[in-house]
């Protein structure tokens, strides 16, 4: 089963939860899909066995064959092409290209456009295939193609933890789409709850079973509990705020190494999730 760990925004303990799940459950796999800021590796210290550059096709124009008819530029909805017949030139703005293939499809002159690979990021695989992470190159407009590329590397372990990107935009949807269960991590602050409520909307729209983990729980503040009650969502676990955990985190030490008793909590949690989705 694939368990995605998501949160409204970064910094709410998403990485703490996903790496703890991975480290607590035998034979689990960990997939870091937060390709803009992958940092699960800091806590897991995997042994990387393979590293591959990931690329997408982009057009390349042969100005000896091109008749400068402008069909490609007209068809490209992303305005990535500009044709200047007077100068016999085709200008291609690679940062705007979405690799959709439309220009090649509409071009009437065979060979005027060929597709060539453009690298957008790196995928690393380690720990006998049980650790996978992607890193998006800087300046690449969308994380979605890399995230969908990573999916090909997901092993078929009994438990697969997907560390989702933060937020509620397309990359998150791309990650959650294929999961069997979504854990939403939040902090009991008004910001945290506001973000949680946005994330919850999307999980509900995707019709995924889900539950909440409250990080930096504070007995005096009942915001998260009230929210969970009002939206009828289960709180799976509350991780109390502790300076020790925060300091450990800042050094890249996983929660379950600072507080080993959490291991059994995370193990139980996976079994409860298994029952929920079966």
């Amino acid at each position: 089963m694939k368990v995605a760990v998501a949160s409204g925004k970064g910094g709410t303990g998403k990485t703490i939860v996903s790496t703890s799940l991975f480290l607590s459950v035998n034979d689990a796999a960990y997939i870091d899909m937060d390709v803009e800021e992958p940092n699960g590796a800091i806590f897991i210290s995997p042994e990387i066995e393979r590293e591959e550059r990931f690329s997408l096709p982009v057009p390349s124009f042969n100005e000896n064959i091109c008749t400068f008819c402008n069909a490609c530029a007209e068809a490209c909805v992303y305005s990535a092409i500009s044709v200047i017949p007077q100068a016999k030139k085709v200008l291609f703005f690679e940062e705007l290209c979405h690799s959709c293939g439309v220009c090649k499809y509409v071009c009437p002159e065979p060979g005027a456009i060929v597709e060539v690979p453009k690298e957008i990021g790196t995928i690393r695989v380690g720990n006998n295939g049980n650790f996978v992470e992607g890193t998006l190159d800087i300046g690449i407009p969308s994380a979605v193609p890399l995230i969908s590329g990573i999916k090909r590397y997901i092993p078929d372990n009994d438990v697969v933890i997907l560390d989702s990107p933060p937020g509620t935009s397309c990359p998150v949807v791309e990650t959650l789409k294929d999961s069997d269960y979504v854990i939403l991590v939040t902090e009991p602050t008004p910001f945290g709850i506001n973000d949680l409520s946005l994330a919850l909307d999307i999980v509900r729209e995707l019709e995924k079973p889900h539950g909440i983990i409250v990080n930096k729980h504070n007995e005096k503040v009942s915001l998260a509990r009230e929210f969970a009650r009002s939206k009828d969502v289960e709180i799976l676990l509350e991780i109390p705020f502790s300076r020790k955990v925060a300091e450990g985190y800042s050094k890249g030490i996983p929660l379950v190494d600072i507080e080993p008793e959490y291991r059994s909590n995370f193990k139980d949690l996976i079994e409860r999730i298994r029952v929920t989705i079966s």
């Binding site: 925004k9 970064g10 910094g11 990485t15 803009e36 800021e37 940092n39 800091i42 998006l136 800087i138 300046g139 407009p141 969308s142 994380a143 990107p165 933060p166 937020g167 935009s169 990359p171 985190y249 800042s250 050094k251 890249g252």
Partner: peptide, 26 residues
Amino acid sequence: PGIGCPVTSAISGANLAVIVTEPTFS
């Protein structure tokens, strides 16, 4: 947050970007 497309839109043309960071490993 992040470094994706919304961030690049937010900073392009800005006179100053103040980056808030925390002393965590990451």
